[in-house]
């Protein structure tokens, strides 16, 4: 009787979980479906398979410029925020000092602030300082919103990191740099790469801050935003969107695998000595 009832609740829950995942994925799946449809408007029934919308993409100079800008912004933001993230995560996980929690809270704050507030307050300050808006100002904004994610990935990777390994290395005569390169770095490398990928993906997909802080140069989301005004451009946007989706999926999957490997590595080492 109880097993029967348990099976039933579990059955209901599994069905619900399945439907929920469908609800999560369904809207996203329409983009690739209609990006290979011959009709210019996305509606059923599908009219036929084509790759012409994809073929048109490389022939659009404005799009190529936007892709290049996105790449430049994404790589810069990923490197800067990961460097700042490493410093902060190392400090948080290794040292104890007053104000540690408050500082951590401040660094994580962009995660829970409405994006529009972050965007317009940065815009005001940059204009007051007389900085002209450019891809550089977009990078400044993106780093701010990427650091919390970088911190999350990196603190998970640094936690459980066994300090005695570093001390052993130092005792055995390694220099500080040698210890960092040969002991610390290999242990935390997966977390660092994971953070780089996560930050790059966030920057690649981020719209609002780029929209406010860019001058005349567009990133890919801004380019898409501009194209959305023209109904006839929709299939091309869907094709571009599909490529962006694929890139995000791929990067985040790699990042997740690396993040798990990092967590496992440090935990296993901790487990050995515990």
């Amino acid at each position: 009787m109880t097993t029967m009832r348990r099976f039933l609740t579990k059955g209901w829950l599994s069905t619900y979980a399945f439907l929920y995942v469908v609800f999560l994925y369904l809207p996203v799946i329409f983009l690739p479906i209609f990006s290979v449809n011959t009709a210019a408007t996305p509606k059923f029934p599908l009219s036929g398979f084509t790759l012409k919308w994809y073929e048109d993409l490389p022939r659009t100079p404005a799009l190529l410029d936007a892709a290049w800008n996105s790449l430049v912004v994404g790589v810069s933001a990923a490197i800067l925020s990961t460097v700042l993230g490493i410093l902060a995560a190392r400090s948080i996980t290794r040292y104890r000092y007053p104000g540690r929690r408050a500082i951590n809270g401040l660094i994580m704050a962009p995660l829970v602030l409405p994006e529009i507030i972050v965007a317009i307050s940065l815009l005001l300050v940059l204009l007051q300082l007389g900085l002209s808006l450019s891809l550089f100002t977009v990078v400044l904004g993106h780093v701010l919103v990427c650091i919390p994610y970088s911190m999350t990935v990196l603190t998970a990777g640094f936690e459980g990191f066994d300090r005695s390994l570093e001390e052993a290395s130092a005792d055995l005569g390694e220099s500080a740099f040698g210890t960092f390169r040969r002991v610390t770095l290999p242990m935390v490398a997966p977390a660092i790469i994971s953070s780089l990928l996560v930050c790059f993906t966030i920057s690649l997909d981020e719209f609002l801050i780029a929209f406010f802080l860019t001058g005349t140069e567009a990133t890919l989301p801004i380019y898409i935003w501009g194209q959305l005004r023209f109904a006839s451009k929709l299939p091309g946007v869907l094709a571009l969107g599909t490529l962006l989706l694929a890139a995000s999926f791929l990067l985040m999957t790699i990042a997740e695998i690396l993040r798990r490997r990092a967590a496992k590595r440090t935990q296993n080492e901790g487990g050995l000595y515990a």
Binding site: P27, V28, F30, L31, V198, T201, I202, L204, D205, F207, P221, I224, W225, L228, V237, G241, L244, L245, S248, F249, L251, M252
Partner: peptide, 11 residues
């Protein structure tokens, strides 16, 4: 982790 803009667009 996919673009927020794209998800809104699909709706």
């Amino acid at each position: 982790w996919t673009s927020y803009l794209l998800r809104v667009m699909s709706w």
